[in-house]
Amino acid sequence: MKPNLILHVVSKFLIPLIIVFALYVQFHGDFGPGGGFQAGVIFSAAIILYALVFGLDAAEKIIPSHVLRILASFGLLLYAGVGVVTLLLGANYLDYSVLGSTQIAGQHLGILLVELGVGITVAAVMLILYFAFAGRGRT
């Protein structure tokens, strides 16, 4: 691919901003619009932009596909694991109130962890999807 200077400079400027925005959406989702689903998609959009501009191999150097597979399973396990922890603490499955000293603190912690799990899984799966489709094109 012919290197395109404007595309390179602009995307190098934009990608960190997109990632910071994804983190903001992830962790500010309790107070404004946002949450794990949106943050995961926005984060993967940043990496996909990198892959589109700098090539698939460069993007796979940043996040190798075996790491992505582990991350996708880790997010789901984190979500299910929070439920198991609440079970062990004597409450119902996914009842976060027992996680903290007060009900509100427990709910905050539980929602944060669960949204983190959702974000990790969604970001990893979206990248897996893109890498699978883009990687099929090269023989």
Binding site: F37, G40, V41, V122, V125, M126, L129, F133
Partner: peptide, 17 residues
């Protein structure tokens, strides 16, 4: 609908595959 949109794109990707 929020969750349905993300599940929808995953299903679209499966169909495209």
């Amino acid at each position: 609908i929020l969750t349905a949109i993300v599940v929808g794109v995953a299903m679209t990707a499966l169909a495209l595959a």
